[in-house]
Nucleic acid binder design. Structure first.
Length: 310
DNA sequence: TTGTGTTTTATTGCCTCC
DNA sequence: GGAGGCAATAAAACACAA
């Protein structure tokens, strides 16, 4: 058993004696407190706390199970302790008010630690999910961009080959109605897309969705897969076929990847297929990604934090 | 039994609020 | 300026493996 130095003895006394010189934390001159202190002093020999030297030992005593239970119960009700409640609890449990206050203080600290651990766990789970999703989208994005590139080159080749038949085609088209020509070119485009190994299919389902690599994308932009391509659709301008847009005589089929990357296959006003634009805003670009997924920065997205963060 | 890691109790110093 | 809260820390008590 450790013997107390004079300062330790003073500290121990101060912790249990209301009349101590602890200006900061003493609880005032409570007569009951003094009586308790005295009885405590009288009972010290129970643990051999008054040693041969006459010094008071510092033996730290754990609270009993019942005392802890009662304190826990009170903590559940309110984790802050008003002075009246503190004194009452101390009386009920046979403890010093100071002990009750210290217990609550430490209990709050433990609760905070646990809370931080819980929050960390939640955030980590969120982060892991987002990271996984991002990697999946990135992979899909790469695959789709590759497909578009291949289709583009294929279409360029087709255009080159058809140069020689241009006269015939123009003649034929001249004999067709606009609607027929449009339909023909759209069909050609669809066939071309399918022939070139793309997994994008236009199934014209009643929801106006398309299936992309097995994932349905619906008119509202929702998808049954997180990694699906999203149809860039204007419902107001679209016909029954949701994946077409007829603007100024042009039909465009556009794909949006990862929210911000867009590639568009366009039938121009002469009904020639063109890929007019492939752009990537790359929402999850290198810089934004690294800053978003770093551990040493708090998340900045409001939905990323629970409301009771703090 | 002993060394070591964890938990609990208590202290100290600083800060904020009234 | 006093009271009380909190973070950091000390130290006793406890748990447990070797």
């Amino acid at each position: 058993m450790k013997r107390l130095s004079s300062s330790d003895s003073l500290g121990a006394l101060m912790s249990i004696c209301p009349n101590s010189t602890d200006e900061h934390h003493n609880q005032g001159n409570n007569p009951m407190y003094t009586r308790e202190f005295q009885s405590m002093m009288e009972g010290l020999d129970e643990e051999g706390c008054v040693e041969e030297s006459g010094q008071i030992s510092e033996k730290k005593r754990r609270l009993s199970v019942d005392q802890v239970k009662a304190l826990e119960k009170n903590f559940e009700v309110e984790n802050k302790l008003e002075p009246e409640r503190k004194v009452k609890l101390a009386q009920e449990l046979g403890l010093q008010p100071r002990q009750v206050a210290v217990w609550f203080q430490n209990r709050r600290a433990r609760w905070k630690t646990k809370q931080l651990e819980r929050d960390y766990g939640l955030l980590k789970a969120n982060y892991d999910g987002l990271k996984l999703n991002f990697e999946k989208l990135q992979h899909d994005n790469q695959a789709l961009l590759k497909e578009i590139g291949e289709l583009k080159s294929k279409l360029v080749n087709e255009d080159g080959n058809s140069e020689s038949n241009k006269e015939v085609s123009v003649k034929e088209e001249g004999m067709l109605s606009d609607a027929e020509v449009k339909s023909k070119h759209e069909t050609q485009l669809m066939n071309s897309l399918e022939e070139n190994g793309t997994e994008t299919t236009f199934n014209g389902d009643k929801n106006g969705g398309i299936s992309t690599r097995g994932a349905s994308v619906f008119g509202d932009g929702s998808s049954d897969s997180d990694s699906s391509a999203i149809l860039n659709e204007d419902n107001n301008n679209s016909s029954n076929s949701p994946h077409h847009q007829f603007l100024n005589g042009s039909t465009s089929i556009s794909f949006q990847f990862c929210s911000e990357s867009t590639a568009a296959a366009v039938l121009d006003k002469n009904y020639h297929t063109q890929f007019v634009k492939i752009e990537e805003h790359n929402f999850f670009g290198e810089e934004s990604c690294t800053s978003f997924f770093t551990d040493d920065q708090p998340p900045t997205l409001p939905w990323y934090c629970s409301d009771d963060w703090n």
